[in-house]
C-alpha cells in the first residue's frame, strides 16, 4: 500500500508545473556557475528563442562563413548551446513512453499560419531579448527591463484572450442562426 501511494505521489510530482519551474530555475543557475567562464551572457541558462538562434545561426555561420550574431559562449565553444535539440528529444521520449504521441495532421493553411507565427514570435522574442523563460531568469537576476517584458507579455495574452472570446461568441451566434 505504501509503495502504491509513493508511486502516485511521484507521478503527481512529475506532472506538476511547479516542480518543473523549480527545476528550470535551479538548473539555469547551476549551468551558469559551470559555464560562465566560456563567455556568458548572464541569466542565459535556458532560453527557447535565444538558444534556437544560437544553434541555427552558428550552423549557418560555419556553413556559409557569415557572421550572424551568436551568444559569446555558443560562439566560443566547439558547438553552440543544444538545449533545443534536448527539449525535442526529451519531449519525444516522454510522449512515446506514456503513449501520448499522436500525429495531428495539418492542412496547408494551418501549416503556413504556424510557420509565419514562428517567424514573428522569434522576432518579437529577440526584440525583448529572450523568450518568456529567459525573461523570468533575467527578472530573477535583477533585470527590471525583463519585468517590463513579462508585464507586456501578460498584456498581450490578455488582449489575445479577449480576441479569442470575441471570435468564439461570433461563431456561436453564427451557428445559432
Amino acid at each position: 500500500m505504501e509503495d502504491e501511494s509513493k508511486s502516485k505521489n511521484l507521478i503527481k510530482m512529475v506532472r506538476s508545473p511547479i516542480f518543473l519551474g523549480v527545476i528550470i530555475g535551479f538548473l539555469a543557475a547551476l549551468l551558469q556557475s559551470l559555464l560562465y567562464s566560456a563567455g556568458g551572457p548572464e541569466a542565459y541558462g535556458f532560453c527557447v528563442a535565444c538558444h534556437t538562434r544560437d544553434m541555427v545561426d552558428d550552423l549557418i555561420n560555419s556553413i556559409f562563413g557569415t557572421s550572424l550574431v551568436v551568444a559569446p559562449f555558443s560562439a566560443a565553444a566547439f558547438a553552440p548551446a543544444l538545449s533545443i535539440i534536448g527539449v525535442m528529444i526529451g519531449a519525444l521520449i516522454a510522449a512515446k513512453n506514456n503513449k501520448e504521441f499522436r500525429i495531428k495532421k495539418a492542412n496547408f493553411k494551418g501549416a503556413l499560419l504556424y510557420f509565419l507565427g514562428g517567424i514573428f514570435v522569434l522576432i518579437f522574442a529577440l526584440l525583448l531579448g529572450g523568450c518568456p523563460y529567459r525573461a523570468a531568469l533575467r527578472f530573477a537576476y535583477g533585470d527590471m527591463l525583463a519585468f517590463i517584458g513579462i508585464l507586456a507579455i501578460a498584456l498581450g495574452v490578455f488582449v489575445g484572450t479577449r480576441i479569442v472570446l470575441f471570435q468564439m461568441k461570433k461563431q456561436i451566434e453564427e451557428e445559432a442562426k
Partner: peptide, 23 residues
C-alpha cells in the same frame, strides 16, 4: 568548458523537455 557547453545544455534540454511534456 568549451566542450561542456553543448553537452550540458543538451542534458538540460532533455530534462526540461521530458517534464514539460508530462506537465
Amino acid at each position: 568548458v568549451l566542450i561542456l557547453v553543448p553537452i550540458l545544455t543538451l542534458i538540460l534540454g532533455v530534462i526540461i523537455g521530458y517534464f514539460a511534456q508530462q506537465s
